[in-house]
């Protein structure tokens, strides 16, 4: 794993560093990857396709250098383009492939933003609710949902959140987001929901 060593040093710096916000970036970034966009993908490994939409939106908009506008501070929870992707106003649902608990690439920026937001808001807690689609036995699906919630838990911990801020639970197939016995419904049900708790 060639994890860049300097990133640890960089992170605090770049959080305080100023960012030239692009006026146009908000629109250029496109809509956030909500259930409709990310969730309707098929169960196969097409995560990469939608991943580009979420992850690169920020980069694409950033290439337009705004020489006029004043620099704006990076706020934890926001994307490079200034959109809320983390925190209570961010993207709150992470979708998964069938029978899998690996996190699709498209969610790395979103999780990063959540991690940063939680790091900056130590008093806040978030419940990670793992869910599965209805296929298979309810009890096994409960465990599968738990495994998904745990994957998100691990990612957020590595990206700045404290363990005490996170509470991973599973609802298995008991609380589907969409009713229906087809892949469209199932893909929306294989998910982890981030539920920010109001204290």
């Amino acid at each position: 794993m060639n994890f860049p060593r300097n990133t640890r040093v960089c992170l605090p710096i770049l959080l305080s560093v100023v960012l030239a916000a692009c006026e146009t970036s908000g629109t250029a970034a496109g809509p956030e990857p909500g259930p409709d966009q990310a969730g309707t993908g098929t169960a196969t490994a097409d995560g990469g396709a939608t991943a580009a939409g979420a992850g690169s939106g920020a980069i694409a908009s950033g290439t337009v250098i705004n020489r006029e506008g004043p620099p704006v501070a990076i706020e934890p929870g926001r994307s490079a383009s200034g959109d809320w992707i983390g925190g209570p106003q961010g993207t709150l649902v992470i979708y998964f492939d069938y029978d899998r608990s690996s996190i699709r690439e498209e969610y790395s920026q979103i999780l990063q933003a959540h991690g940063a937001w939680l790091a900056a808001n130590q008093g806040q807690t978030v419940r990670l609710e793992g869910h599965a689609d209805e296929r298979g036995t309810p009890e096994y699906n409960l465990a599968l949902g738990s495994r998904r919630a745990n994957a998100v838990n691990q990612a957020l911990t590595a990206l700045g959140a404290a363990g005490a801020q996170l509470n991973a639970v599973s609802f298995g197939e008991e609380r589907p987001a969409a009713e229906g016995a087809d892949e469209i419904a199932w893909s929306q049900n294989r998910r982890v929901e981030l539920v920010y708790e109001t204290n």
Partner: peptide, 9 residues
């Protein structure tokens, strides 16, 4: 029962 401790059942 299946008991879930540290995300392991």
């Amino acid at each position: 029962v299946a008991r879930n401790v540290n995300a392991n059942s």
